[in-house]
Design a protein around this nucleic acid. Structure first.
Lengths: 153, 153
DNA sequence: CTAAACCCTATAGTGGGGTATAGGGTCAAG
DNA sequence: CTTGACCCTATACCCCACTATAGGGTTTAG
């Protein structure tokens, strides 16, 4: 797989692939005799992993660590050749990331609730002015919508 | 509340507050007689709202829209003075954001699972080499850890 | 009345994450 | 054997989201 195909499949710019390589987010791929980069399917997975993680707010530095973390595990044969200190560090990092992920999930769930309430409320309002399809007598919520502020606005 | 206190409470730089004002993410606050910005508690909530949302991967432009969306609702009195077209647009935007939020939650949950598996696996491995607290005979997983790639590495 | 700790505007600079361009080689179809 | 679509390196540029600096006013404690 050449770089163009990889980029197209992953939905990113070709330059981005080369940029990720420079930044050590992608390993240096094999080269054809003429010097073209020759990628494996796993590289596509890796690019998509990077994109997904970047979209949910991780920096490239964090993603790089995450990738190293996975790699550390993959390169570790059964009985383990890493000194326990290293393994403990990796575990610590993993737990740290896990905490970050949980925090983000919490924020997103809260947002979700708020957005759902917002949309629900607006849909109700829309019903009042729109004479169409107004059969259900659901009362138009008297209380004001949830505000961002903890004090009344 | 002056700008310094607001910034300290929110955990951001003073310049960031002024930047958010320029970028219309914060409303222009009242001013003291000498021209100092005078903030209300709700402004702190707003700054923290912006930070939280930025951390989970929304751009400032998206957050601005989100804030406008909330504002549109707050400014809408019971019978509604917005034309239905406007309301429908806001609903559309709200649903769009909701879809984004749900997608992010999905990705994060997947990451969470992977990270948990990773940490669990590493903790098992640590048990083998560490002679301490090795009472439970849980077999040291023979299969290699889940890889990023769909093909074997 | 002065010095430290705040505040103001305006403008320039920075780091992260790409994206574009110049100048040139490769490969497959016609 | 040329033309178009691809690839290469190197370098410059861009946008976003801040962050710092210059040059100056205000407030409060001693």
């Amino acid at each position: 797989m050449h770089i163009g195909e990889l980029a197209r499949e992953a939905g990113v710019n070709i330059q981005t692939i080369r940029f990720y390589e420079r930044e050590k987010l992608l390993p240096q791929p094999a080269r054809t005799s003429s010097g073209y980069r020759d990628y494996q399917p796993r590289d596509l997975d890796r690019v998509m992993f990077i994109r997904r993680n970047h979209e949910i707010g991780f920096t490239l530095a964090e993603i790089r660590q995450l990738l190293e973390l996975h790699a550390a595990l993959e390169n570790m044969p059964q009985p383990m050749r890493h000194r326990p200190a290293e393994v403990r560090e990796i575990i610590r990092l993993g737990r740290e990331r896990l905490a970050q992920v949980n925090a983000k999930i919490g924020v997103l769930k809260e947002m979700k609730k708020q957005l759902e309430a917002l949309v629900r409320h607006l849909e109700q309002s829309a019903l009042i002015t729109c004479p169409v399809a107004q059969s259900d007598g659901a009362a138009t919520s008297r209380r004001p919508p949830r505000s961002l502020s903890r004090t009344r606005s």
